[in-house]
């Protein structure tokens, strides 16, 4: 009897597992007809950062729905994942930071197309900070020190390289320690790194929690108002779904304008897709949300990457930019 009871339990568990497994099938409705779109549900790769605020504003205010689109955001943790996912079609569009997209374009990992600009640096959006009691007072004191960046060969190293050069040092004068942003404050506090290149909300966090001191804003000089990221797809996807992509562009640009002019709108959506505290969201420094995709601006990224050796040859970004539909 007891044995029977246990057997029933095991069979029950197996049945439950089978049911869960069956319910896992994805239903991807790609039926056309709605506003003539080739595809009405599009999957969009995002990172849980301020850069993508406009996507959630558009979502919340029904801008996508008005275009006949259902947008499903999913987190893509890095370009190592987002590029293969674009190629396989697991996502149709992804947040792409320009540095990574241009480097991957040169490496011929895919033929990228940028649909819209989404985030641009402003004052104090990407700073270098040190501990409260650190002897490091200025960028010059960073010589021989260990500084954390989000990744090697990234916008982070480009930004710090440029700040070092502006202060008479070279990138070889420091040691870069790549680590995800959430790990950097702990490593800085415990002395495993001497300085950290950070963005929000970590910048506000370390200054508030551990009295960390800013020694430089990296988005100055050659990198003032630097373009950070744009909504990116690949050429085959654009060719296959031109109307759906155009619908996405129209909706996102409307939301970009709101994000750029109404800080409260951004603060409101941030806690929807990150676990940021609303009171933190209210005080962090935000970048700009451009509503035009300007070739001159994006070309700056390619040119600076070339100057610092992150691109091998001159790249014309013109063909990558998708014009805004009427």
């Amino acid at each position: 009897m007891r044995l029977l009871g246990r057997r029933a339990l095991v069979i029950g568990v197996i049945a439950a597992l089978t049911l869960t497994a069956c319910s896992g099938a994805d239903t991807d409705t790609t039926a056309g007809g709605n506003n003539g779109l080739e595809k009405t549900t599009i999957k969009v790769g995002i990172l849980p950062i301020a850069d993508v605020a406009a996507l959630f504003i558009a979502q919340e205010r029904g801008f996508f729905k008005a275009e006949g689109l259902t947008v499903k955001p999913e987190i893509v943790a890095s370009t190592q994942v987002s590029i293969p996912k674009l190629v396989s079609g697991a996502v149709d569009i992804t947040l792409g930071n320009y540095f990574s997209v241009l480097a991957a374009q040169e490496a011929k990992m895919a033929n990228f197309r940028i649909l819209a600009d989404t985030f641009q640096a402003k004052q104090d959006v990407f700073d270098i900070v040190v501990r409260k009691d650190s002897p490091i007072q200025s960028v010059k004191d960073l010589k021989g020190k260990k500084i954390s960046v989000a990744a090697l060969n990234s916008i982070g190293t480009l930004a710090v390289d440029s700040t070092l050069r502006a202060n008479g040092l070279s990138p070889e004068d420091v040691e870069y320690a790549p680590m995800p942003f959430p790990e950097a404050p702990g490593k800085l506090a415990s002395g495993q790194t001497d300085a950290a290149w950070l963005t929000e909300p970590f910048l506000t966090g370390v200054q508030k929690d551990m009295g960390a001191r800013k020694i430089a804003d990296t988005m100055t000089g050659a990198m003032a108002d630097f373009p950070i990221a744009g909504w990116t797809t690949i050429e085959p996807t654009l060719t296959k779904y031109p109307k759906a992509m155009a619908a996405f562009q129209r909706a996102i640009v409307k939301a970009q304008q709101i994000a750029d002019s109404d800080r409260k709108a951004v603060e409101k959506v941030l806690p929807l897709y990150t676990q940021i505290k609303p009171e933190t969201a209210a005080i962090i420094t935000l970048g700009a949300y451009p509503s035009t995709l300007n070739q001159t601006r994006i070309q700056r990224v390619a040119d600076l990457m070339l100057e610092y050796g992150y691109l091998k040859s001159k790249m014309n970004v013109g063909p990558l930019l998708v014009p805004m539909p009427q």
């Binding site: 790769g45 990172l47 849980p48 950062i49 499903k72 955001p73 999913e74 987190i75 893509v76 943790a77 890095s78 994942v81 995800p180 942003f181 959430p182 404050p185 702990g186 909300p201 970590f202 966090g205 806690p271 897709y273 990150t274 676990q275 940021i276 505290k277 933190t280």
Partner: peptide, 26 residues
């Protein structure tokens, strides 16, 4: 989920918590 992300999952939650600088929630 931590490395690749996705629409949801415990790992995805940890990524979102990390991005909000919420070590306690991670």
């Amino acid at each position: 989920e931590l490395l690749a992300g996705g629409e949801g999952g415990i790992g995805v939650y940890i990524v979102r918590a990390g991005s909000g600088y919420r070590i306690d929630l991670m």
